[in-house]
Design a protein around this nucleic acid. Structure first.
Length: 672
DNA sequence: AGTAAAAGGTTTTTT
DNA sequence: ACCTTTTACT
């Protein structure tokens, strides 16, 4: 069925009779092997409904099952349970959640919702007394999630991961207690809850029933699972369940989400009698690229022993380019992208990778200036921007009038309505009591508005009333609600017009749906991973470049890869310099980036970078080349041009290039 | 009393 | 750029 499997791949596909751990290096055909294994299982006559395939993204599951379907003779692949831990948890909890005290209609809070709820609770509990700054809501939510998913004590999490918040331990405890009871009262679950409840169910009276759902369990990216997820896997397996986990400990990059490679290292303790198969032949990259990747990885001893090798002995030597500053880097990357296109590499064959979303800001400007189409993955998501959340809150309110978060957000958008008025209106409308007629009464005019809010409020009532009509399709609802947005955005945001244009994109997305509630569910479980800032997605038949964080590039490959900001402080990130575990993870991140390249690899290193992301000034710092690249420099080709500041006319526009900077540069060269 | 505007801070990565 | 806190204004 899958021809051209190598010896180890075939062994991994055929193995049965004991739990199996496949250690699969980058580019060794992991996806293909896993897909072939599913196909083999179905071929052996397994009931596809009794096969569970857990992947890191839903897209990965879909892609893998697509491959299975392409080989299989029937349509059974589409009946395999495939998805992320979270989407599977959702499915299971809808069916079995009553046994854990959940009503089947529970709502899922995505990251942003959970953060907002945390913020709401935070203000209600009255933190931020005079003179004392309190951690922002994102930080509070981060601490909470970190604590839950690593199953560590609050005090330990504060000490190791959030030392600057250590003073607020008691306050955080209070907030977390209130946050949890609020979630329970509103029948909502955050991402962490979904895993906790699933795990809880496996240990409950229905545990046996859950274990009987599946005969075959396959898990991809096992190195990026956390302790709770490992418990779930154990809790879902009977002694005779056919379990297969695939992972690469050298590519573990989610420790910040409490993922731990210990799940791989301890696999045979968790599952006695387990077999391990290692895939080492790389089918993706040329040998010169692998030589760099191997050498980088060799700087850390902390992984299963593994040296990738490839048949593709010949190839271009990877290039290491030093640039004067970020602007020079942007221009150079654009040029080498265009140059590669001249040589026959389409834009879609190329990608630009970076550690943090904002590292690409400068490049994005340059790409736009040169009319090079691109799509950016990672970084701030479309759904996370304020104005999109405004509109989604309107839709969610229509969908579930008891949604406290949505009510609060919407009421607060009105001019002249602040926290106090929101509180009063909540009371008048019975929102906090979960009254079921709140929305109807509001539309009919209930709720006394301050004079300043009257115009906007009546527009809001009209818009909501219009959308409540079941005849109005989701896309039309978005269009109608947009009129309300047009009224409030100018007072709320600086660039109202651009933000309104974004709403049109949402309407376009909604056009594919017949039901509003279905549209909303899909958005939370499978949000578009693309970042919003471009007006519209390029047409499918157009050629476009990919910009991606390294995290979002996991599992993908391109013929040509350009890595940005290979400077100490950026990759490795400044925040990880403190501890060994953090540094090791940054090294793996570098490894993941390098191994995305098939034919060509360019590593870029600007000599200066901005100190902080929100720079209102031009403060910058002189960088050292990444400590992961420095020791393996001789494996690169280093064009000598470009290090000296160029007399580029554009440079005069950049106010930061001054004599003092050049003197400092020359000085630092004396001791660096 | 309560809102808006102005000032001051800000740890990446994401299901 | 956004969020939190403080101050000024209605």
């Amino acid at each position: 069925m899958f021809d051209s499997l190598n010896h180890q791949q075939a062994a991994a596909v055929d193995h049965s009779g004991s739990p199996l751990l496949i250690v699969a290096g980058a580019g060794t055909g992991k996806t293909k092997t896993l897909a072939a294994r599913v196909a083999r299982i179905l071929d052996d006559g397994a009931d596809p409904n009794r096969v569970l395939l857990l992947t890191f993204t839903r897209r990965a599951a879909a892609e893998m099952l697509g491959r299975v379907a392409a080989v299989g003779s029937d349509r059974s692949a589409s009946q395999v349970w495939g998805g992320t831990f979270h989407s599977t948890a959702n499915r299971i909890l809808r069916n079995f959640g009553q046994n854990a005290g959940l009503s089947p209609g529970f709502t899922v809070l995505d990251q942003g919702d959970a953060t907002d709820l945390m913020g709401m609770v935070r203000t209600e509990e009255g933190f931020g007394e005079r003179g004392r700054r309190f951690p922002r809501k994102e930080t509070v939510a981060g601490i909470y999630s970190r604590m839950v998913s690593s199953q560590a004590k609050l005090a330990d999490v504060l000490e190791t991961d959030y030392p600057w918040c250590a003073d607020h331990g008691d306050d955080l405890r209070t907030i977390f207690t209130a946050y949890t009871s609020r979630k329970r009262a509103n029948n909502v679950l955050d991402y962490d809850d979904m895993l906790l409840f699933w795990r809880g169910l496996t240990a409950s009276t229905v545990g046996g029933a859950l274990r009987d759902l599946f005969d075959h369990v396959l898990i991809d990216e096992y190195q990026d699972t956390n302790p709770v997820q490992a418990d779930i896997v154990r809790g879902m397996c009977r002694p005779d369940t056919d379990l297969c986990a695939v992972g690469d400990d050298a590519q573990a990059i989610y420790a910040f989400r409490a993922a731990t490679v210990a799940n791989m290292w301890n696999f045979s303790d968790h599952f006695p009698g387990a077999t391990r198969i290692t895939l080492q032949q790389n089918y993706r990259s040329t040998m010169p690229i692998l030589a760099v990747a191997n050498a980088v990885l060799g700087q850390s001893a902390d992984h299963f022993d593994k040296q990738l090798w490839s048949d593709r002995a010949d190839g271009l030597t990877p290039i290491l380019r030093t640039h004067h500053d970020e602007g020079a880097q942007s221009r150079s990357v654009c040029e080498s992208i265009l140059d590669a296109r001249e040589r026959g590499l389409d834009l879609r064959d190329q990608a630009v990778l970076f550690r943090a979303g904002h590292h690409a800001d400068g490049l994005e400007l340059e790409l736009t200036r040169r009319d090079i189409p691109y799509v950016k993955y990672g970084g701030l998501k479309y759904l996370e921007s304020g104005h999109v959340k405004d509109l989604l809150a309107l839709l969610r309110l229509l969908d579930n009038p008891a949604d406290q978060l949505a009510w609060h957000r919407i009421l607060a958008t009105l001019e002249g309505v602040g926290p106090a008025t929101v509180r009063r209106l909540s009371d008048e409308l019975g929102i906090d009591r979960q009254a079921d007629d709140s929305l109807a009464r509001f539309i009919d005019g209930a709720g006394k508005m301050p004079t300043a809010a009257e115009t906007q409020a009546s527009e809001l009532r009209a818009a909501l009333g219009h959308c409540l009509d079941a005849q109005v399709l989701p896309a039309q609802q978005v269009d109608r609600l947009k009129q309300f947005c047009a009224l409030v955005f100018p007072g709320r945001y600086d660039n109202a017009a651009a933000r309104l244009a974004d709403i049109d994109q949402l309407a376009a997305g909604a056009a594919a749906y017949w039901s509003r509630s279905r549209f909303l569910t899909e958005l939370t479980l499978d949000p578009p991973s693309r970042t919003s800032d471009q007006a519209g997605p390029p047409h499918l038949d157009d050629d476009w470049l990919t910009l991606s964080t390294i995290h979002s590039a996991k599992g993908l490959e391109w013929r040509s890869v350009h890595l940005l900001h290979a400077a100490d402080g950026n990759l490795p990130s400044e925040m990880a310099l403190g501890d060994d575990a953090g540094l090791a993870e940054e090294l793996r991140l570098m490894y993941v980036a390098l191994t995305r390249a098939k034919d060509e690899l360019t590593v870029n290193f600007p000599l200066r970078y901005h100190v902080n992301r929100y720079a209102t000034d031009d403060k910058h710092v002189y960088a050292q080349i990444s400590r992961f690249i420095e020791p393996v420099r001789e494996l690169f080709h280093e064009p000598s041009a470009g290090i000296e500041p160029q007399l580029d006319p554009d440079l005069t526009l950049v106010g930061s290039v001054g004599v003092a900077d050049e003197v400092d540069l020359a000085l630092s060269a004396l001791w660096d």
